[in-house]
Design a protein around this nucleic acid. Structure first.
Length: 186
DNA sequence: CTTACGATTCCC
DNA sequence: GGAATCGTAAGG
């Protein structure tokens, strides 16, 4: 995945990221749901309250991983836009492509359909956590992103984001219509 | 040092 | 509907 891909508005990156393949060693999956977090005017974005140790990587160059914890779970984002502009895209769900058996071991006793249908679930299935904070997702070293079969633009749906405290109804969430791994249908 | 609070998930 | 549970950030 070329770094230039991420050097754009988070909304465009979020939409175009659908279909991209996330790889981490033996496990891989096709992204089917994302959310954009804007660099400016977005109270729900972590970078909204400024630059801190936690949000530091958001202000760096695009294509790097911004991993954060909420409660006891980790979530994976990709930094978008040029250095100094803290936009990012949250990877909310993906469809398993390889290593399903390993995902089952990591996720415990859950149905296959719930292996990776949520931002924290996919991190657990892919063994991604805070230790991946700031890693380059464009350098080919795991974990990394690869171009996948482009999904039909007509299948892409936009809607309100999930679980954000600051009530934001802008359509910043993108997902593949009718995909069974999308975390929630609206 | 102390307190408040989640970009979630799973179980009752 | 509610608890789990811990790092981060802000305030004293």
């Amino acid at each position: 995945m070329k770094r230039g891909f991420f050097c754009r508005d988070p909304r465009d990156v979020a939409r175009d990221l659908l279909g991209t393949i996330l790889v981490n060693g033996p496990v891989a999956g096709r992204i089917v749901e994302t959310e954009a977090y804007l660099a400016e005017g977005d109270p729900a974005a972590h970078a909204y309250r400024g630059r801190t140790k936690r949000t530091e990587v958001l202000f760096g160059p695009p294509g790097y991983a911004y991993v954060f914890r909420t409660r006891q779970h980790a979530c994976l984002n990709v930094v978008a836009q040029p250095a100094g502009v803290p936009g990012c895209v949250l990877i909310r769900a993906l469809a398993p492509v390889a290593g399903v058996d390993i995902m089952r071991e990591r996720r415990g006793d859950v149905a296959d359909s719930r292996l990776t249908d949520g931002p924290a679930k996919l991190c657990q299935a892919f063994d991604i956590d805070i230790r991946h904070y700031g890693v380059d997702l464009c350098d080919g070293v795991d974990p990394h992103l690869e171009e996948g079969p482009a999904c039909d633009a007509r299948d892409v749906v936009a809607g309100p984001r999930v679980g954000v405290g600051a009530a934001m109804t802008l359509p910043l969430r993108y997902y593949v219509a009718d995909d069974s791994f999308v975390s929630r249908r609206t």
